[in-house]
Design a protein around this nucleic acid. Sequence first.
DNA 1: CGGAGGATTCTCT
DNA 2: GAGAATCCTCCGG
Length: 211
Amino acid sequence: MLTKYQQFFTGRPTEEIAQSLLGKQIVYTNSDGTKTGGLIVETEAYLGENDSASHAFNGRRTNYSESLYGNPGNIYIYQIRGHYCFDVVVQDAEEPQGVLIRGLEPTVNQEQMATNRGMNSFNVSNGPAKLVQALGIHSRELDGKPLETSPLTIDITSGKKPREIVTGSRIGVNLKGKDGRKPYRFYVKGNPYVSGLRKREMNLEDYGWEG
DNA sequence: CGGAGGATTCTCT
DNA sequence: GAGAATCCTCCGG
C-alpha cells in the first residue's frame, strides 16, 4: 500500500515525473538542526533496465545500487568520481527507475550553502554533485530512505511553475550507448542554476518562473 | 568564454 | 585494474 506521497512518484511515465519536479522545493535538515534548500531547476530521467545509461541497465543489480529497486519516493545516493549525487526513486520495486536532480536554486539558508561549497556564485548548486554538497550532505547515510520521513525532503504540494521547459540529451552519459542521446533531460529555461549554462542563456530577471 | 585534461574515490570484475 | 549519471583549473583566442 502506497502513501499519497509515494503515489506522486509512480503511475505515469518517468519523463513526466521528472518534469513535474521542476519548481518543487527540496529542504535538508542537518544533524545539528540547520536547514538548507532550494527549488529544483533541472532533472534527468533514467528508465531502468532498458536504458543503456541507467545503473540498472540489462537488469544489473548490485548491492551498491540496490536502492533503485526500492519504493517510489525513496532516496538513491551514489558516488561518481569522488562526488555524491542524488536520485529520487520512481515507479515500483520491479522497475528500477529514477530521476536525477541536477540543479537547485537556493531558497533556504543560502549563506550556509555558499559556505558548504566555498563559493557564492551560481556555481553553488548548478550541478548534481554541487547541489548535494551545498545542501550539506557528505555521505550515503540517507541512501534507501523514504523522502517522506527523512531529513531530506521534497515538498510536492507547493512550488513554482516553469514558464518554459527545455528538453535535451543527458549530460555525462556514454553517447555511444543505445540511449545516449535520448531527450531525457529537462530544465527551467533561463534559470542560472541549470548546469553548464552559457551566460547568454541565463534569464537574470525572473529566473524563468511563471507569474 | 569555452574546451581540454587531470584529480579523485569507490565499486565490481 | 578499469570505469563511472563529476568538478575544477588551466590555457588559448
